[in-house]
Amino acid sequence: MPVAEVVTRFRVRYAETDAMGIVHHSQHAIWFEAGRADFFRAAGISYAECEARGVLLPVSELYVRFSHSAFYDEEVAVHTRLTEIRSRGLTFQYEVRNAADVLLATGHTRHICVNKNREVQTIPIWLRQILSGGGHIP
């Protein structure tokens, strides 16, 4: 079964807040990364293992839409979905909700697949199969 959605839960750290008393808008990108890492693990391979195998997926685009502020110590959940697998890239979509299920932010990241020399490559078939739910680590 493909991994439909992975949920990552944690509490807002003080370090993530700013002088307006809310989470700084740059921090959601780090939350997205946590969600993405959990997505890889749930699919069957850690992102660290992908990199060790010479498959790097740097971010080529980041978009975040902020709906409500997030506050220190509140529990937030990042819902991560893989919405697109192209020959040389991926797109993840994210929703951030608080414990009352209020939507705090939505966004996406696009990634290109490169090798260790940072040259663009097609996503290897084994990773494509793992991410689409049908594969295992060769």
Partner: peptide, 13 residues
Amino acid sequence: FVIAEAHCRYHAS
């Protein structure tokens, strides 16, 4: 004011 949307496209490191 608050930031309602933020967008970045990355071209080089």
